[in-house]
Design a protein around this nucleic acid. Sequence first.
DNA 1: CGATTTTGACCAGCGC
DNA 2: GCGCTGGTCAAAATCG
Length: 279
Amino acid sequence: MEELKTTWSDGSEDELVRELLDDVSPFFVLPQETTESKLTTANESTLNRLLSTVYSGPTIEDIDSALSVTNYKHHFQDISETRISILEKGLSKVENKYTLKIKSCGNVMADDGYKWRKYGQKSIKNSPNPRSYYRCTNPRCGAKKQVERSTDDPDTFIITYEGLHLHFAYPYFLMGQPQHVNPPAKKPKQTISEAQAQEAQEVEESPASFTSSPLPDISEAQEWMGPQGLLEDVVPLMIRKPSNNQFASNSSSCASYPSPETSPSWSSEYSHSCFDIGI
DNA sequence: CGATTTTGACCAGCGC
DNA sequence: GCGCTGGTCAAAATCG
């Protein structure tokens, strides 16, 4: 009876494709016209390519190569590179699960534009770090993910995506085509090219762009997601300590948190984040 | 007051 | 058959 919950493959693909075609999604916006224009030839080819990828199921190579793409040029390029640079290519696939290892300065947060609801947490044997279980709140998406911190390297997070929605990765499939070089119609709000002394920190400052970077019209995505939900999603990785010490400022490594007053227990207040470690 | 997290219990699969 | 482990559920707690 409960099995229908875990059947990603049956009708989910249709749903996914539908979502891919739905420019309402912050994540599956077509690379070019997101407002008035229809599909251009370029877009069609992109779409077809994407659809075929979806239907056939992305392979490790697809994702890996997608994550490696750096020729996508627009004002968010630097961010894309930043993002890519922090991916340590620890990508692996087991059945329908994709495990990604991400290295950060100990404080990685990224918003993939979707909301994740935490539904469980378990302590892992031989590991001081618990594992958090999240489920996509999008009713059209049965994706799940697990987030845990590497035992060896506390700065490395292991995120396991399950289900068809590799939220963070799909947009990169669109990057394969360097033709989508939309001139920045909007002023690049993030011209932090060299200021990124610390990549990871860069990421945490722009969690959403982390994933939406490949999207030309980020403002639209933001609009969809809400004005500032992005920064707010930058939930610092810290040990959840009740009132006592609201911010584990001890996590010195990266200390550029948005609003200290947000809440003493924000680490898991919202599951918006893509890489929030529920501890 | 509604939404979301927390957290222990429960269940199923697996190895011994 | 038993115990262990991972995954999920659901009631209670918490926050905005």
